[in-house]
Nucleic acid binder design. Structure first.
Lengths: 208, 208
DNA sequence: TGAAATATACCCAGTATTGGGTATGTACGT
DNA sequence: ACGTACATACCCAATACTGGGTATATTTCA
């Protein structure tokens, strides 16, 4: 019997998964949570075999929750279930310890396939995810946040619409210091062109 | 027999809805589409009683599709089914002619309730939508987009990171024309300062 | 210890964006 | 017909942002 917990804030999708699994003799749902914290509580109490994990959830996101499960409940395996197909999302979930990654654009039946594969000790990745994202070596090079603490703070302020001189005033530094940080971020992130740093700040999907 | 078509780009959710409805004697699903255009084709061929309509979809969004259905297929009733609970989304779908509005955060069973209510000529709105949004008078005052068609097109391109000169090339106008449009939008939207128009473009949730 | 990264601050330069305007032509509604 | 909105296009100006660098001091890590 494979025990499954589901973390997903769209209740309509949770209900659909429940309908899918209710007639499966080898799978039982032992809990459902609409946010990351509630999910961790469920894992504490029940240590399910599998967690189906959304990424963007209230209170605690899926990457953070996955890291905690990997650290404290290593027998529980996480399958990411997300609308995000971007490289950043995939690599972060894999590095956090997820054994699978499914896209919500795919048929619901894939959830069944993934649960059974991962419960057998295999990994299971949606066929729409580029295979090179799943290479261990690729992951290693992107494992750490490449931005420094100051850079990340400035990025948040940029995302809030603060100008460079406003940020300088907030941080008690010269304008040129903030501009230098900006240049460093642009270089590190491989961006180019006006507004790209602001776009990046606004499009960052995970505020980790 | 109530005939239902579903427009939703997350296949996993479509599958869940299908599971929900497959044992209902009075409801049959006659088609499913992952984008607005495919949905309109289905409505053309089959004129279902009910369309379950996502808002944010590829190729044609739910508001546009709803307007077309309301105009050409008045016997087909649209129920919005969306993650968006914001005022703008709700009022636009209602004004486009939707007879119901469901949130994806709600239990899937509400879909059943909504289909049956709307098929009987009633309206059905998710209990988590503020009731004042559903008042006809409120809607009238927020009914129009303050941006012109050209302005909205340019806003989309801005949100994609295109520079003013790139947008000018795309639209076959002078750079100064695009700049004028930008100034008009900034004035209409009450923005000020560098990057604010790009921020607005990126934070807009509906690219209508 | 030495190298690399970070933080701070500066120099020069180009240009995209915003802010203030001008104007003409077209479309639409009263 | 007239007023308004929209579309097109231009003028002038300021500056924030990016792109290319320079340098010193501090911290971290192997």
């Amino acid at each position: 019997m494979i025990t499954v917990a589901i973390a997903e804030d769209h209740q309509s999708l949770v209900d659909g998964i429940e309908l899918l699994l209710k007639y499966e003799d080898d799978i039982t749902i032992i809990g459902m949570a609409n946010d990351g914290e509630a999910l961790i509580d469920i894992v504490k109490k029940s240590e399910p075999d599998i967690v189906l994990m959304d990424i963007k959830m209230p209170k605690m996101d899926g990457v953070t929750a996955t890291k905690q499960i990997e650290k404290h409940y290593p027998k529980t395996n996480v399958i990411a279930f997300s609308m995000f197909d971007q490289e950043d999302a995939v690599t972060q979930m894999i590095q956090a310890g997820a054994k699978g990654y499914l896209l919500k654009n795919s048929p619901l039946e894939e959830v069944l396939n993934a649960i059974r594969a991962v419960a057998c000790g295999e990994t299971f990745f949606d066929k729409n995810i580029p295979p090179d994202l799943l290479q261990p070596n690729t992951q290693k090079t992107t494992s750490k946040s490449i931005l420094s603490k100051s850079e990340r703070e400035i990025l948040v302020l940029i995302g809030e619409g603060k100008s460079t001189s406003e940020i300088a005033a907030i941080r008690f530094t010269a304008v040129s210091t903030v501009e230098k940080h900006r240049k460093n971020m642009i270089r590190k992130l491989g961006l180019s062109g006006k507004g790209e740093l602001l776009r990046y700040a606004l499009e960052r999907k995970y505020d980790f």
